[in-house]
Simulated scan of single mutants.
Amino acid sequence: MPRGLTLWLLAGAAALAAGAAQAAVTVIGGGAADACSRAAVTGESDRRSEGLCDLALETEPLNARDRAGTYVNRGVIRMRRAEYGRAIADFDQAVKIMPELGEGYVNRGAAYIGQQRYAESLAEIDRGLQFGVEEPAKAYYNRALANEGLEDARAAYFDYQKAIELAPTWTLPAEQLARFTVTRPAPRN
C-alpha cells in the first residue's frame, strides 16, 4: 500500500465469524485413509467420516506421511464441528510424526483462531508457510483472520490480497476485502 494511505476495516467480527479455512492432506492408495482424505477435502464433518480416519489409523499400515496426513484430515473434520481441542490434539500428533508437514501447523493455527488465540495462531501459520503447504492461499486467509483478531487491519488486508493473488478464483478472500476501505488522508497545510 502506498505511503500516506489509511486503511479502515468495517465489521471486523464478521470475518472471524466466517471461520478459518482448512487445508486437508491428500492421501492416495485406497482404503480408509484415502476415504478419510476425500472426506476432509470435500468438506465433510460427520462422525462417519471421522470414523474412516479412526479406522485408517487403527488398522492400516501407513507410511509416516500418510499417517501424519490422516491425523491432519481427522483434525480438519473435527475442527469443522468446532471440536478445537480434539482437532489440536490431532494436529499435534501429525507434527510429532512428521515435523515438516506444513498443514499440521496451518490447521493448528486455524483451530487457535476458533479458540480466539490469535497470536499463537499467527506463529503456527507462519511456521506452516515456512515448511510449505499444498494450499498457501488458505494459510494467508487464516493469517488474515488472526491479524483481524489482533486488530491489525493493515496486515489482514495484505494477507487477504496475497490469498487472492495465490487463488484468484477463490471468492472468500475477496468477500472479506470488500469490508475494507482505503483512503488518503487530507493534505496538511
Rank of each mutant, 00 (worst) to 15 (best):
E60Y: 04
A137P: 06
R108A: 07
E103N: 08
L129T: 03
V72T: 12
R48A: 06
P187Q: 07
Q176E: 15
Y140L: 03
A35W: 13
A156R: 02
W8Q: 15
T181I: 10
V72P: 00
D90E: 05
R117Q: 07
G69D: 10
V95Y: 11
G12Y: 15
A20T: 01
R74Q: 13
R127H: 12
G128N: 03
K138P: 08
L10T: 14
V41C: 05
V72S: 00
A139F: 08
N147G: 00
L172Q: 10
A23M: 14
T169V: 10
K138I: 14
S37R: 04
D126E: 14
A39R: 03
Q115F: 05
G30N: 00
A174T: 01
A139Q: 05
A155H: 00
S45D: 11
Q116K: 15
L166G: 00
Y105N: 15
A56L: 01
L52C: 06
R127N: 15
Q93P: 13
R86K: 15
R86M: 04
L16D: 09
W8M: 11
A23C: 06
G30L: 07
G132M: 01
T171A: 01
Y157S: 05
I28R: 14
L129A: 08
A174Y: 11
L172G: 04
L10G: 11
E151W: 14
A39I: 03
P61M: 03
V106K: 06
G69W: 08
Q161S: 14
E120S: 08
W8T: 14
E165C: 00
I97K: 07
R179E: 03
G12D: 09
G104H: 03
A20I: 00
K162I: 02
I28T: 07
A24R: 11
A119L: 15
L10V: 05
A82D: 15
A186E: 15
R74F: 11
R78I: 10
D90G: 01
Q22N: 09
R81L: 02
N142Q: 02
V106F: 13
F131L: 06
A119R: 14
A17C: 02
C36M: 08
T26M: 11
T171F: 05
K138Q: 13
A123F: 05
A123T: 11
Q176K: 13
T59F: 08
G104R: 02
L177M: 15
E103P: 08
E120N: 13
G51C: 09
I77A: 05
A40D: 09
D126T: 08
A20Q: 08
R47H: 11
R188H: 10
W170K: 09
V41G: 06
